[in-house]
Write a protein that binds this DNA or RNA. Structure first.
Length: 458
RNA sequence: CGGAGCGUAGCGCAGUCCGGUUAGCGCGCAUGGUUCGGGACCAUGAGGCCGGAGGUUCAAAUCCUCUCGCUCCGACCA
């Protein structure tokens, strides 16, 4: 891709509407454009990041036996009436009528749809356990969208649903999925994401965990023990952590309650080491039980010819929120620093003063060589000043950068630097044979990808 | 849904209190020229129904009423 043809202008000034870093950088870098409150279009760089995250998720979901399926965005309300959620869920569920006057809903989560899909298809215990997942658009009519891709009304989500014949089997799979989630976040560039105990809310069920990126811009408050590995969302912790005397009531400001919990005794280890931190929820896993299978009449025949309700688990990841979280965690003042695994392009090729024949010839040759070798490369072929070129490259945040200029041509070299500034070397340039240069670039890509490669293949 | 603020060129803003030629500035964009390793400079130029509707007035970006939208704080939230 040549940058001269890439849509999405990059600019210097922070838009007034952007309150948090990832939002500002993604608007300034030409990644996203707001369409309405909580409704966002993506330009190519953001779409490419999303696709790479999705590929990692698919890989890990397939590895734990998932089957990718596709459920509808628009559903007849009748389905939601079956589960009872048409009435129990509030205005977050967008309802409307079709031309025939039938009640319809926009999918905000897909338990109903997935039970509908599988309930006739798994009549015997021998079909179990199984897991289906999809990566698809959700719409939630949130009362207040905010912070760019962090909290939106329409978003892309991976949601997975597993079905089991015993609680033990569900718990075993839940644990497997927990591990898969750890691998997904690590591969996407957030190895520091942690899981915390959470409340199951409207989903129902007992055991639930949320995966959090601890970060000040996060909307959730997390209670963490500094002494042991106890971690919990405050929503779930309020009942089990004993508040020190004189704390405010739970009805009052949540931040004040969190503050008050600091230094309380940990319910797990007993030490007075509780701390409160903010976090961005990037994924969650629930043990649902039989809430939906019972409500919607999904049954199978067990070994002894008895009808049973399968036990369900569900597992979600917000793809766009994950992308924004990586940006939030990996950036400098110039722009995002995308990990190789999800970067929009692997290599950013800059041709400084490309009207010089030596430069344009060398750059074109390198560009062609990289393309031929299958490297994802964005080529800045514009006649702009070095400052503009570097600033734009910083905003696009590609992990590796090649710089060709009259200076580098003079010394028969190309500059090879990394976005995170850990690499800065000259690669020898021989226009007659650029294979060595291309393979040096490839080696660096492989090196930077190592952390994200699957540990195990199916 | 409560509270606060804002809608003027692609972006950032001034002008609105106190109505009065042709609505400005910076960035960006286009053309030409000079530059060239961290958002260069000069010249010329394009781009606006001042969010929308109604009203007051000789005259409205500016005053009044209604409306739509956006942002922030809170409530809410798999």
């Amino acid at each position: 891709m040549k940058i001269s043809q890439l849509l999405g202008l990059r600019f210097k000034e922070t838009p007034a509407d952007c309150q948090i870093t990832s939002h500002a950088l993604m608007v300034r870098g030409g990644y996203i454009k707001n369409v309405g409150s909580g409704i966002i279009s993506l330009y190519a760089p953001a779409k490419r990041i999303m696709q790479k995250i999705e590929a990692i998720i698919r890989d890990e979901m397939n590895r734990i036996g998932g089957q990718e399926v596709m459920l509808p965005v628009v559903m007849p309300a009748a389905l939601w009436k079956e589960s009872g959620r048409f009435d129990s869920v509030g205005s977050e569920l967008l309802r409307f009528k079709d031309r025939g006057g039938n009640d319809m809903v926009l999918g905000m989560t897909h338990e109903e749809a997935v039970v509908h899909l599988v309930r006739g298809a798994a009549p015997s215990y021998s079909h179990y356990p199984f897991m289906v997942y999809q990566i698809q658009t959700k719409f939630r009519d949130e009362p207040r969208a905010r912070a760019g891709l962090i909290r939106v009304r329409e978003f892309t989500m991976k949601d997975a649903y597993s079905f089991h014949t015993s609680q033990e089997d569900l718990e075993e799979y839940y644990e497997e999925c927990h591990k898969a989630y750890e691998r997904i976040f690590a591969r996407a560039g957030l190895p520091e994401a942690v899981s915390v105990k959470s409340d199951s809310g409207m989903m129902g069920g007992k055991v639930a965990h949320e995966f959090m990126l601890l970060n000040d811009v996060g909307e959730d408050t997390i209670i963490i023990c500094a002494s042991c590995d106890f971690r919990s969302n405050m929503e779930a912790a309020e009942n089990i952590v004993e508040k020190p005397a004189g704390s405010p009531d739970e009805a009052s400001d949540r931040h004040a309650v969190a503050k008050a919990l600091e230094g309380a005794a940990c319910p797990a280890c007993g030490k007075k080491a509780i701390t409160a931190k903010n976090g961005i929820e990037i994924g969650n896993i629930f043990q649902l039980g039989t809430k939906y299978s019972e409500a919607m009449g999904m049954q199978y025949t067990d070994k002894d010819d008895n009808l049973q309700y399968p036990i369900m688990g569900c597992y979600g990841i917000g793809v766009g929120r994950l992308a924004a979280s990586v940006c939030e965690a990996r950036h400098d003042k110039f722009g995002p620093i995308w990990p190789m695994s999800i970067a929009p392009w692997q290599v950013h090729l800059c041709a400084l003063m490309s009207d010089t024949p030596e430069v344009s010839e060398a750059a074109a040759k390198i560009y062609g060589g990289l393309l031929k070798a299958g490297v994802e490369v964005i080529f800045d072929d514009r006649a702009v000043s070095a400052g503009v070129m570097f600033s734009d490259a910083d905003l696009l945040g590609c992990p590796l950068r090649l710089i060709v200029s009259p200076k580098t041509c003079q010394r028969n070299a190309v500059e090879f630097v990394s976005r995170d500034k850990t690499l800065k070397i000259d690669l020898p340039l021989d226009l007659g044979n650029i294979d060595g240069l291309i393979s040096a670039v490839n080696q660096q890509i492989v090196k930077q990808m190592e952390f994200s490669l699957p540990v195990l293949r199916l």
